[in-house]
């Protein structure tokens, strides 16, 4: 049953430990409560090792929380099995990683189509047209049939963004998507997130170490040692 509230994501008392049952057991997230609205454009910041990637992986259903509940599009997810989590991740979440993670064996457009192929099988003409439009939107219409290793880092990251958007996700998660890029390219890529947030109305949660980028977001969530220490709207949206 989809929730009628405006939240695309809600975390309640979410905890995450690593190495459970081992002597080096360690709790990384200590009871996180967080809501992300349907059109939020939020930056997740915090010192290295504070648990940002861990939180993003849990939100993206790649990892399971140790306790607490995660509601995605109003649905509780703790009781879901792998198939259910994968299906929900497939249509609700788009992922962008720091290291553009593309499949080297596939062309740019096939990489963009991959989430659809995994969910539905062979893509039809509509899906292919959609993928082309997304490649055009990230400025890569000419590179549809190029293999990733012939693209620059910034181009690869833009392919990854197009891939994250192909399923029209409600929430786009990005873990330091510009961390590997020069300042100019980083700003271009960031601009794409901004644009898709406005145009497609998908919520964006973006991890960044760059204060200029985080201040360009609408909201800044500060995670320190596995706890949210501040969560505020930015005063002056650009």
């Amino acid at each position: 049953m989809p929730d009628l509230s405006q939240d695309v994501l809600r975390l309640s008392a979410l905890r995450k430990s690593y190495n459970i049952g081992l002597p080096n057991e360690m709790e990384v997230l200590h009871g996180i409560n967080l809501e992300i609205g349907r059109t939020d454009f939020a930056a997740l910041i915090g010192p290295s090792g504070s648990g940002k990637s861990t939180l993003l992986n849990v939100i993206g259903l790649l990892d399971k929380p140790t306790s607490g509940e995660l509601y995605l599009l109003g649905q509780p997810t703790s009781a879901m099995d792998d198939e259910g989590r994968t299906a929900l991740r497939g249509h609700a979440i788009g992922f962008v990683f720091q290291f553009h993670h593309l499949m080297q064996a596939f062309s740019a457009i096939d990489n963009v189509l991959m989430p659809l192929m995994l969910a539905q099988g062979r893509p039809g003409p509509k899906a292919i047209a959609h993928a082309r439009a997304l490649l055009a939107a990230v400025g890569l219409e000419k590179y549809a049939n190029t293999k990733p290793n012939q693209l620059s880092g910034g181009q690869q990251q833009r392919v990854a963004i197009a891939r994250a958007l192909i399923t029209e996700p409600a929430l786009l998660l990005a873990d330091e998507p510009t961390g590997n890029l020069d300042t100019h390219t980083a700003e271009e890529v960031f601009g794409l997130f901004r644009r898709f947030n406005r145009e497609f109305g998908c919520a964006v949660l973006l991890v960044t170490h760059d204060p200029r980028l985080s201040s360009a977001c609408d909201r800044t969530i500060n995670l320190v040692d596995g706890a949210i220490v501040s969560d505020a709207l930015n005063k002056s949206p650009p």
Partner: peptide, 16 residues
């Protein structure tokens, strides 16, 4: 390994 991770993140189930 890495590509398997990417596939999983982009919606592949264990069975796939």
């Amino acid at each position: 390994t890495r590509e398997i991770g990417i596939l999983r993140a982009t919606g592949a189930t264990r069975r796939q």
